[in-house]
């Protein structure tokens, strides 16, 4: 079981550290990174200040293991990492980090898109959009 969930935002320093760790792998020629950043959407005149993420971790981990296994079978990847924040993430902060590495550039794009979409669809993560006036609504992925 790989570590996926991080309490609080995924910082630029964390991302830099992940990149740096891959610089010793000299068979890698291409990295592709997806970052999900919390938007200050305006919904009925109220502005989103942040999202409070929770997760059913006991269910999420086997699903994430399956996702990784299937992605390694489908795409010709050297490395793959998925991180998601838990807790309150403010607008402008990063809550989702998918990191894919391969020998050649053409391998990485479809893998990243696949991973982002399947995590959104299959992993039991819940998001409470908190407005600036402290009211809230529950986020639903389309």
């Amino acid at each position: 079981m790989k570590k996926v969930f991080i309490n609080g935002p995924i910082t630029p320093a964390f991302i830099a550290n992940s990149i740096e760790k891959h610089q010793s792998k000299h068979s890698i020629g291409a990295h592709n990174i997806f970052l999900g950043q919390v938007r200050a959407d305006v919904i009925k005149d109220k502005t989103v200040a942040g999202i409070d993420f929770t997760c059913y971790e006991d269910m999420a981990h086997p699903i994430l293991d399956d996702i990784r296994e299937k992605a390694f079978k489908t795409f010709n990847l050297t490395c793959m990492h998925i991180y998601h924040s838990l807790g309150e993430i403010k607008a402008g902060e990063v809550c989702f980090f998918v990191f894919v590495s391969a020998k050649h550039s053409k391998e990485v794009y479809a893998a990243t898109e696949y991973l982002v979409n399947i995590v959104k669809k299959k992993v039991p993560i819940f998001g409470k959009e908190i407005f600036e006036d402290e009211s809230h609504q529950w986020k639903v992925n389309k």
């Binding site: 999900g36 997760c55 006991d58 269910m59 989702f96 669809k121 299959k122 819940f126 639903v140």
Partner: peptide, 12 residues
């Protein structure tokens, strides 16, 4: 047994 009631997913 563990039963879980899950609202729509919102990761990402």
């Amino acid at each position: 047994d563990e039963i879980a009631l899950l609202p729509p997913f919102a990761g990402g």
